[in-house]
Computed example of a mutant assay.
Amino acid sequence: MSSLYYGTDLLNEFDRLQRHLSTVFGGAPTSLRSTQAGAYPAVNVGSTDDSIEVVAFVPGIDPSKLDVSIDKGVLTIAGERARPDAATDAKHYARERFSGAFRRVIELPQYADPDKVQARYTDGCLLISIGKREASKPRAITIQ
C-alpha cells in the first residue's frame, strides 16, 4: 500500500487545501479582476452593443446620498450606509450586514464614453449606463 493514500477523493483534498489557503491569506483576491469577499456594494457589470451596464445593489440607501463619478476611465460609487440598530444598546453575537462608508471603483474599458452616462435608482438598485464611443460600435461593411 502506498504511503500517499489519503482514503478520500483527491479532488476533495485539493478543495480542502484551497479552503485552508484562503483562511491563511485572509480571503485575498485570486486575480486582478476579483474583489475581496464582502465588498460593498455588490455590482454586476455587463455590456450591450451600445453601452456598458453597471448595476450596484444598494438597498435602503437614499439615492441623494450616493456619489457617482467618472474620471480617467474609472467609475466610482461612494456613499454611506447607516446602522439600523445604532440607537439600541443590544449586544451582538454576529453581524453580517455592512454599515459605514463605502467606495467601489470600477475600471472601465477604453471604449466607454464618459459624456454619455445615465444613472437611476430603482428598487434598491443603482443602474448606471455608460455609452460606447461611436468608433467602437460594430458596423456592417457592404461588399462590392
Rank of each mutant, 00 (worst) to 15 (best):
M1H: 12
S2A: 13
S3M: 12
Y5K: 15
G7K: 04
T8I: 13
D9C: 09
L10A: 14
L10W: 08
L11V: 08
L11T: 08
N12H: 06
N12T: 11
F14V: 07
F14K: 09
R16Q: 09
L17A: 10
R19I: 07
H20K: 12
H20G: 12
H20P: 07
H20R: 13
L21F: 10
L21H: 09
T23A: 13
T23D: 11
F25M: 10
F25H: 15
G26F: 03
G27H: 06
P29D: 07
P29G: 05
T30C: 06
S34V: 03
S34K: 06
T35A: 09
T35F: 10
T35S: 11
G38K: 01
G38L: 00
G38I: 00
A39T: 13
Y40L: 00
A42Y: 08
V43G: 03
N44G: 09
N44E: 11
V45Q: 10
T48N: 07
D49S: 11
D49F: 11
S51L: 05
I52Y: 12
E53G: 05
V54L: 03
F57Q: 08
F57P: 03
V58R: 01
V58S: 02
D62H: 02
P63D: 01
S64Y: 07
K65I: 05
D67N: 14
D67Y: 11
V68Q: 04
V68A: 03
S69R: 04
D71L: 09
V74T: 08
T76R: 09
T76V: 04
T76A: 07
A78N: 01
G79N: 00
G79P: 00
G79S: 01
D85T: 04
A86D: 15
T88W: 11
T88E: 14
D89T: 13
A90F: 14
K91M: 15
K91D: 14
K91Y: 08
H92S: 10
A94S: 15
A94V: 13
R95Q: 15
R95N: 15
F98R: 04
F98N: 04
G100M: 06
R103W: 05
R104M: 04
R104D: 04
R104W: 03
I106L: 15
I106W: 09
P109G: 05
Y111H: 10
Y111G: 06
A112W: 01
D113N: 10
D113V: 01
P114Y: 07
P114F: 07
D115Q: 08
K116A: 14
K116Q: 14
V117S: 05
A119C: 05
A119H: 05
R120Q: 13
D123N: 11
D123F: 06
G124S: 00
G124A: 02
L126F: 02
I128Y: 07
K132C: 06
R133Q: 13
A135D: 12
S136F: 04
K137V: 01
R139K: 13
T142S: 11
I143T: 12
I143P: 06
I143R: 12
